[in-house]
Amino acid sequence: MNSSGSISYCKPFSHIYIEERAAAFPACARILERYPDAARIPIRHYKDLFNRPRQDWAMQKQSPQLILAVKEGRLVYPGAPVCQSFGSQYFYYTSSVMNCLYDCEYCYLQGMYPSANLTVFVNLEDIFRETEQLLSRHPVYLSVSYDTDLLALEGLTGYLEQWCRFTAKHPSLTIEVRTKGANIAALRSLPSCDRVIFAWTLSPETVIRRFEHRTPSLAARLAAARAAKEAGFSLRLCFDPLILTADFQTEAEPFVRRVFQEISPDMVRDASIGVFRISGSYLNAMRKNRPDSAAVQYPYENDSGVCHYGKARSARMTELYRSLLARYLPREQIFLWEENRKEENGWKP
């Protein structure tokens, strides 16, 4: 309680829920060391907590708590149709962490997961083993930071360091680390490998301030992107998702110009463009969770289960960014997400 007599939310991770089996893993002890004052609550299975009915995502996001668990079943999945494969034939993704420290209003996680609490799976070695099985059959392109932001969490988990070491040891593995993070110190301490692609999601400053709460500024993201390249990693710029605002048209050119003032085009491996799109069922859940978000409450068109701004409007938004990026990057380095390409994007093993 503060002096005025009103109370505040609990600090993030004031309570840590620990699955019985997870307690034995070194990652669990490592993470708990960082939060010596947190209340520790033993749980039987993370789903007892994570999958409770009627959870309130928006309220939980005010005070996210931490769950330490062991991941079971299949650990590495084929890429989803709404995700870009960047031309990779063997495109997979994996989730060593569920949920994110940031609070982006348009984030699909609030439609996909019933809880906003952060769940860290402590058995990363099992994910490595399953990846090695795939590598014994063919090369693998693996997204390791889709349902979270591993760079933002590096101080907590140390998982990026382990992924970088693992990738360096396996020449036919390429990993993508999707991020909005700005942890330059962590980037500089990671073992360098050019098959680790850091993919920064970039948005105009107005979109960051309005919709991407608790995320680093554009300047901080660009500085981190430059640091990643200088540290020997590959660099991808993601203009995805493009969010429609009143200033969308006018701020696009200065935004892209600023990005390439900070990041020389020859530092960039490739770039992606995609308008905001979301599965209809996720959008329904998101609208309940975020009744006051213009990004979520936009009257999207539902096209065979995928909601978007409408084909014509989406095409205009994509084309604007494509033409702006074409000033700096050759065509083959620019990847577009388009509704009619989702079948070819979605490789199935």
Binding site: I7, S8, Y9, K11, S14, I41, R44, L49, Q55, M59
Partner: peptide
Amino acid sequence: TGFCGKDGRPWYPDILAAH
């Protein structure tokens, strides 16, 4: 912060307010 039933089934509230 946690409850356990006769059959061992658990239930947890969300403790969001500092107390």
